[in-house]
Every structure is written in structure tokens, then in C-alpha cells.
């Protein structure tokens, strides 16, 4: 068991496990955000629960942050090692003949997602941490005390068109990343069998529906507020 992370397959496996965790988190994030379109009161209730529950705040949140950082750092390490494995490039390389653009450019879609996450953290996560843990306001209420603040904050953020456009672009890159990443994670843990074809279809649906859903939510709030 020792040294498994020092092997090429071990690193693939670790990369895939962090990807599975992030894909499950993404689904959960999408479901909660969808509530902001369907039922703002429910969105507020669930947001308050997520923002104040100790298990989510002190266990799941650090695990998530670790998962994100691990996935990015491991991705960069693999990219650097892989670049070293070919010291002279081809004068002519027809990559499009044998593989998808998404599979060959995971590092670039990943890099854009990283930039998106930095902006997303500045927009939502850092103000949330400031309100709760620096100012010490765990009530989740608006300044006037009239109901929860979460829905108001969300809709307020999607007023500027530049932010909506940037978020939509981020979700497009997320879709491109997932279109390869979903099945790649399964292949890395050794899951390639009779269910693979079905899983491929599910993966494509996941990679398109979830980012498209996020785009819809951003546009919905922009045009309705």
C-alpha cells in the first residue's frame, strides 16, 4: 500500500476520487440553487441550514476546500510531468483525428474554472465567512430583520451583466471539463465494463444539464430583478 501516491496509477486514482467528490458536491450545489428559482423561501431555509450546521461548516466545508485544492494541485503536477515525458514536440500533430478537444485541453478548461472559483469565492464565500465568523452574525437575517438574507444576496449579485456573462462562460468551461472528466474518472478507478456505454450517456447528460442549469439560474435572476 505504501507509496501508492508516488505511482502513476495511484495519482490517477487520487485524481478520480477527488473528481467524484467534486461532482457529487456540484450536484448538491445545483439542487440547492435551483430552489432559488422554484421557491425562494425553501432556498433561504436550506441556505441557512447549510450555513449554520456544524457538520457542514466544520467538517464538509474543509473537506470540500481540501478536495478543490488537491484536484487543482494534482492536475498541475500531472500536467508538468506529462509535458516532461515528451521533450520534443511533433512538427505536425493531428490530435483531432483520435481524441476530443475536451480531453486534450483539460488543463485549460481547469484553469478557467480555477479563475471562476476565485471570483466565485470573492463574490459569495468570503462575504459569508466575514458576516458569520468575523462580524459574528449567525442569524442569517436581513439588516432590517425581515426574513433571511440569502435569496436577496443571490439575486443582488446577478444584477451586473458582466458578472452574469463571466459566470455563464465559467459554466461553459465547466461543461467542457465534465464532458471528458466524468468518464475519465470512472476509467481511472478501473470501471470500464458492460455498463460503460450507459454511463457515457449519463455522463454527457450530467456534463451538459448541470452547467446549463446553472446558466439558467444566473440568467433567470438577472432578468427578473
Amino acid at each position: 500500500m505504501s507509496g501508492i501516491l508516488n505511482s502513476s496509477i495511484g495519482r490517477k486514482f487520487a485524481m478520480a476520487l477527488s473528481a467524484f467528490f467534486l461532482m457529487i458536491f456540484l450536484l448538491q450545489h445545483f439542487v440547492i440553487n435551483s430552489l432559488s428559482v422554484i421557491n425562494p423561501d425553501s432556498f433561504n431555509e436550506v441556505s441557512h441550514f447549510m450555513g449554520t450546521n456544524w457538520l457542514i461548516q466544520y467538517i464538509m466545508q474543509p473537506v470540500l476546500i481540501f478536495g478543490v485544492i488537491f484536484h487543482f494541485i494534482m492536475g498541475f503536477i500531472l500536467e508538468i510531468r506529462n509535458k516532461k515525458a515528451r521533450n520534443i514536440s511533433y512538427a505536425k500533430n493531428n490530435g483531432g483525428a483520435n481524441s476530443t478537444w475536451m480531453s486534450r485541453n483539460m488543463i485549460y478548461s481547469g484553469l478557467f474554472i480555477l479563475i471562476f472559483l476565485v471570483i466565485h469565492f470573492i463574490d459569495f464565500w468570503i462575504p459569508e465567512i466575514n458576516t458569520k465568523y468575523i462580524q459574528g452574525d449567525m442569524s442569517g437575517l436581513l439588516a432590517d430583520g425581515e426574513g433571511y438574507r440569502y435569496y436577496e444576496e443571490l439575486t443582488h449579485k446577478f444584477v451586473p451583466i458582466w458578472r452574469v456573462a463571466f459566470y455563464c462562460l465559467g459554466f461553459v468551461f465547466l461543461a467542457l471539463h465534465l464532458l471528458h472528466g466524468f468518464m475519465s474518472a470512472f476509467q481511472s478507478v478501473g470501471a470500464n465494463n458492460k455498463y460503460t456505454q450507459g454511463l457515457k450517456g449519463f455522463g454527457k447528460a450530467y456534463a451538459i444539464i448541470i452547467p446549463l442549469g446553472f446558466i439558467f439560474i444566473a440568467l433567470f435572476h438577472h432578468f427578473n430583478h
Binding site: S8, R11, K12, L78, R81, N82, K84, A85, R86, G95, A97, N98, S99, T100, S103, R104, M106, H180, M183, S184, Q187, S188
Partner: peptide, 13 residues
């Protein structure tokens, strides 16, 4: 010194 597989599938093709 071979690189790490990222499952592009180019090898299979």
C-alpha cells in the same frame, strides 16, 4: 519516464 494517462483514448484509436 513515460507520462501519465489522462484517458484521451488517442492510443486506442
Amino acid at each position: 519516464g513515460f507520462g501519465n494517462c489522462t484517458n484521451t483514448g488517442a492510443c486506442e484509436v
